[in-house]
């Protein structure tokens, strides 16, 4: 490998790892928000919320 290739691989790997973590965080966030919405729509409420869905 040439020196330029070592530099290229380092930056590419950094982009892949940080991009991968970012993607995982985004997908996890999206899935949890969708789950929360499903639960609220099916009538499940948190203890601090009244039946109409407002915070007590």
């Amino acid at each position: 490998m040439t020196h330029a290739q070592y530099v290229f691989v380092s930056y590419t790997l950094t982009a892949i790892v940080l991009g991968g973590i970012g993607l995982w965080l985004w997908l996890d966030r999206r899935a949890r928000l969708a789950e929360l919405k499903r639960l609220e729509e099916s009538g499940v409420r948190r203890r601090s919320q009244d039946r109409a869905g407002h915070r007590a």
Binding site: R29, R32, L33, E35, L36, L39, V44, R45, R46, R47
Partner: peptide
Amino acid sequence: WRRRIASMRRA
């Protein structure tokens, strides 16, 4: 949110 979902499911 994950913990809220878990507690809502338990309740």
